[in-house]
Nucleic acid binder design. Structure first.
Length: 271
DNA sequence: AGAGGTACCTGGCAGC
DNA sequence: TGCTGCCAGGTACCTC
């Protein structure tokens, strides 16, 4: 489910409710996420005060004096704030219960997400260490893209989706950004000019920013920290629009397969 | 080093 | 109604 806008929306949704609050109890109903939830999490996080909620790529970090909880929502995870005491449903794997009777509940049907604990710098954690730059930062620009693409022949769609190149841009927003940039998703990256790299970085920033403003994209099951859906799906130009007319030229939108993932594009507008 | 495939897991839906 | 197969927003890890 979540790409960067959804994770950012989740962070913004939960932060005001848990920042400065003390963890009273942690209930783990199922430790079997992508990586097993470590015992060190319960042992160390209980009794700690969350002093900051931050995001790195699609990872959500809960900072305390004792260490940092690292959360990834995978394909189907949600984090929401509820009143403590509400019955858990089938895929509600973890409750972090706070002093003020609020509960941060992690639900993840497909269990592709994770919940880890680190006592050292989270940026140096194995999972975060080699991530690419944040797409909305100045480090992510046409020169960066141009330099990294010269010796690669992979399709631009797969290049953009690689988190070691740039974080947070998943299947939906890659298709959308490539449409906005007018670039065919199958184009080998080393065939893209500096000028097109500029269009690409600009489009990625624009699509992500607009999606964050809309509270993310809810296709089936994304809800923010307060249980509300996102609205960006109403503005999708190509994603999920196979055979429907392109908003710009009326040509039917194509759906193809790239690296086992669906790609949507307009062959007329994207060259 | 880069590219491609596989694995993890469940739910929803189309088709029979 | 019920079964089967396919698809889904992610990404680490393996091999070539």
């Amino acid at each position: 489910m979540p790409e960067l806008p959804e994770v950012e929306t989740t962070c913004r949704g939960i932060a005001p409710h848990i920042t400065g609050k003390k963890v009273k109890q942690i209930i783990i109903r199922n430790t079997r996420l992508r990586y097993p939830i470590p015992e060190s999490l319960t042992n160390n996080l209980t009794g700690q005060t969350i002093h900051q909620v931050t995001r790195r790529g699609k990872y959500i970090l809960l900072h305390t004096d004792a260490g940092v909880a690292i959360i990834h929502l995978g394909m189907s995870g949600t984090l929401r704030i509820i009143e403590s005491g509400i019955d858990a449903e089938k895929h509600d794997h973890v409750d972090i219960i706070f002093d003020h009777k609020k509960c941060l509940r992690l639900r993840d049907p497909r269990r592709f997400g994770c919940l880890l604990w680190t006592q050292t710098d989270p940026q140096q954690h194995k999972l975060l260490k080699s991530l690419g730059p944040e797409p909305l930062s100045d480090d992510f620009n046409e020169n960066y893209i141009y330099k990294l693409t010269r010796k690669r022949s992979v399709a631009v769609k797969q290049f953009v989706m690689n988190s070691h190149i740039v974080v947070g841009v998943g299947n939906i927003y890659t298709s959308e950004a490539l449409f906005q940039a007018g670039i065919n998703p199958t184009r080998p990256v080393n065939k893209i000019s500096l000028k097109s790299c500029k269009k690409l970085s600009t489009a990625i920033k624009d699509v992500l920013s607009r999606a964050i403003t809309q509270g993310g994209t809810t296709l089936r099951d994304f809800y923010n920290g307060e249980g509300k859906p996102g609205y960006f799906q109403q503005q999708l130009s190509v994603y999920g629009r196979e055979s429907q007319p392109c908003h710009h030229c009326n040509t039917p939108i194509l759906k193809i397969q790239q690296g086992q993932r669906a790609t949507y594009y307009c062959k007329q507008c994207q060259r």
